[in-house]
Nucleic acid binder design. Structure first.
Length: 661
RNA sequence: GCCCGAAUAGCUCAGUCGGUAGAGCGACGCUCUCGUAAAGCGUAGGUCAGGGGUUCAAGUCCCCUUUCGGGCUCCA
């Protein structure tokens, strides 16, 4: 019998019988690998383990412990979901079911526009477990598109996919361009055993060898989703699930979800009396209560101080402007859908501003500028209004009115590189002060299609951004062609305390507005070049940043931001005088301090302060009154400290506030 | 905007088959004066989101509106 030779990722080679599969290869390496393998990568392409190997190929066996393997596992679980739904709901049809981050989904359409209920999810999950217990093999079948169209006769969405993918019919350019050669498609069939028909799905694959490899999954929720994401198309019923390689990983994920819910800024905002969303205001519009407003003010004060130190000049601009401004800026051309409708006054339309930039351009243009004036860094905490879809608003994270910490920097082309480098450094250093130190950046470059500005300027700016990223030592990925038509940009994401990523800051070049508004400056040689404009938002939205911080800290703001830094609890009414003295001393040193009088039991008052997440609870009784000390119960500490001299505590708090820790 | 779901006291929620509204916490009052995460007793608090309809009777069933929640292509 002839042999084939395949190579492994470590460079070693193995001989196998002709016709051997990746599964055979895994078995030849070890029983453990054979059991854990879910898919193979053959010459760089993912393949089913059962696919025969060609002589000379390089093969990697992938287990569910890798991202690639997990991807396949989730994909196969989605497939089982579809099988269960088609079993349980006669007349149901199915569309697509890809793996996604943490899990998978599958889109269905039920006869008569039916919907899934939570009880249905349980039934479906039970059926999925039966299918998994049956350990049905996934078998790949390739067939002509015409045959597939017949096979999926009752499933119009599958037919649409076949037509788009294999025949290039009725699809947009992207799909048609990737049509597979020869008009064939692949399907996966898993046999139910006995005389049952089994289940077949149109699928590129690959899949795990059999359903028995699956099992650590949970169905999560059902929602509506448009076919191909377009609101012009029918609304399908989407079922979301999560799937993992091990029971422990599944449990960990469910725990993280519970943790995220515990940190939900809308819940914490209510519990800590920070912000509310009265129904009378409308979607996406919040009011700030005294404690929330205090924290916000501290954030804004710090931001202003840093900007002052960083060479920015503060400006203000109105909330509305005549339509002519937005016509000149181009917003009415390309951004009108996100703008509030105009109000008509004295025969002219006025629009609430969705951005501050045109106003800052007006300030630049208010007098002739010289190269000596550049870079001109204008900063405003400017409230903007955007008409977000009512279904998209979400607490402080997506609202219809918010405050941008918006800078516009006008600089000469030759100073671009150094300005970008210092800008990025500035952004990162402010974010670090708020407790973020895990950053991820994205560089978006010139789009392939329509763009403004000369290519040389694009290249210069893009390289300037790249150099800034390199010198900051930041991890970044490049989104080739992902930039806006008016300039390249850097987006900075931060990772929060529970590993979630938030896009916050952006540094965006703009070659468009200076052109539209005819900006120029007088250079040293008397020529009049255009300045380059840089948009820079750091928090992005003050409100959203506050929401992210609230979730990051789970409501336990560090001392420098805590609305109450120390709460003084007299043990009994007799200590009220000393408690007041302690509070006065702390206030005179600039600390935010409250006294909780002894008309409730001490334990209850300690609890109240803990629930309010006050950094320091100070208990004062007889000993303290006699000795000028306090009992210090720090947030997060194991137990209270006794007999701490008041001055020593005040110094410690001062240090902590100073360090913003 | 669109799909599904939800809305009962300040908060969290119960309310059966359609039969006239409940609890805990919080608030307020009185008592207790206490050394580290919930003292005792009492009182107030509701147009059951708003509007319309069905019914002898609606928190409960139907319709509309408002707000909230989840979701709305990382091509099979």
């Amino acid at each position: 019998m002839s042999q084939i030779t395949v190579s492994l990722p470590d460079g070693s080679e193995r001989e196998l019988a002709e016709g051997a599969s990746a599964a055979d290869l895994a078995a030849s390496i070890g029983p453990r690998l054979a059991a854990d393998a879910v898919v193979a990568v053959v010459d760089g392409a993912e393949r089913d383990l059962a696919a025969p190997l060609a002589d000379g190929s390089s093969v990697e066996i992938v287990t569910a412990s890798s991202d690639r393997g997990l991807h396949t596992l989730r994909h196969s679980t989605a497939h089982v979901l579809a099988q269960a739904v088609l079993d349980l709901f006669p007349g149901a049809t199915f569309a697509i079911g890809p793996p996604i981050e943490h899990g998978f989904y599958y889109d269905f359409e039920l006869p008569g526009g039916g919907t899934f209920s939570d009880a249905d999810l349980e039934r479906i999950e039970d059926r999925m477990r039966e299918i998994i217990d049956a350990d049905q093999p996934f078998r790949r079948v390739e067939m002509a598109a015409e045959d597939a169209l017949e096979l999926f006769e009752a499933h119009p969405y599958k037919r649409a996919i076949i037509e788009a993918v294999a025949l290039g019919v009725g699809a947009d350019g992207d799909l048609a361009s990737e049509a597979s050669e020869g008009g064939t498609v692949s399907c996966y069939r898993n046999d139910a055993g006995g005389d049952a028909d089994g289940f077949v799905d149109l699928c590129l694959g690959p899949h795990v060898p059999s359903t028995g490899r699956l099992g650590h999954f949970a169905l999560q929720r059902v929602s509506g989703a448009y076919w191909r994401g377009s609101e012009r198309n029918p609304m399908l019923q989407r079922i979301y699930g999560t799937a993992w390689a091990t029971r422990k990983e599944l449990a960990g994920h469910l725990h993280r979800l519970a943790e995220a819910e515990r940190r939900d800024h809308r819940r914490l905002a209510a519990e800590l009396d920070l912000v509310s969303w009265p129904a009378e205001l409308g979607p996406g519009l919040a009011v700030w209560h005294p404690k929330g407003a205090l924290i916000r003010k501290l954030m804004e004060d710090y931001s202003r101080q840093r900007h002052a130190d960083g060479g920015y000049e503060f400006v203000f601009s109105p909330h509305i402007a005549k339509s002519v401004l937005w016509e000149t800026s181009g917003h009415l051309d390309f951004y009108a859908e996100s703008m509030y409708p105009p109000m008509e006054m004295d025969g002219t339309d006025y629009y609430p501003k969705p951005m501050n930039c045109p106003f800052h351009v007006m300030i630049y243009r208010s007098s002739q500028r010289s190269y000596r004036d550049l870079p001109m860094r204008l900063f405003e905490l400017g409230a903007v209004y955007r008409y977000e879809l009512s279904g998209a608003v979400h607490g402080l994270l997506r609202s219809r009115g918010f405050t941008q910490d918006d800078s516009h920097i006008f600089c000469a082309r030759e100073h671009l590189a150094s300005e970008l480098a210092s800008l990025l450094e500035f952004v990162l250093s402010v974010l670090e002060a708020f407790g973020f130190n895990d950053f991820q950046a994205r560089l978006s470059t010139r789009p392939a299609g329509k763009y403004v500005g000369e290519e040389a300027l694009w290249n210069e700016a893009t390289e300037g951004l790249r150099a800034a990223l390199e010198s900051a030592g930041l991890d970044y990925e490049t989104d080739e062609g992902g930039g806006a038509f008016y300039g390249p940009k850097i987006d900075v994401d931060v990772r929060d305390a529970i590993g979630r990523s938030w896009q916050l800051s952006t540094i965006q070049l703009d070659f468009n507005l200076p052109e539209r508004f005819g900006l120029e400056y007088v250079a040293s040689d008397g020529s009049r070049p255009r300045p380059v404009m840089i948009h820079r938002a750091l928090f992005g939205s003050v409100e959203r940043f506050f929401g992210v911080l609230l979730e990051h800290y789970a409501g336990a703001f560090p001392a420098w931001l805590a609305p109450v830094q120390a709460e003084v609890l007299p043990v009994a009414a007799a200590h009220a005088g000393y408690a007041a003295e302690v509070a006065d001393t702390l206030r005179s040193r600039g600390f935010r301090t409250e006294v909780s009088p002894a008309d409730e039991p001490l334990g209850k008052r300690v609890r109240n302060a803990k629930v309010a997440k006050v950094p320091y609870v100070l208990v004062v009784g007889d000993d303290d009154t006699a000795n000028g000390t306090v009992g210090v119960n720090a947030r997060g500490a194991k137990g209270p400290e006794r007999d701490v001299p008041l001055e020593a505590f005040a110094d410690r708090l001062a240090q902590e506030v100073e360090a913003r820790s």
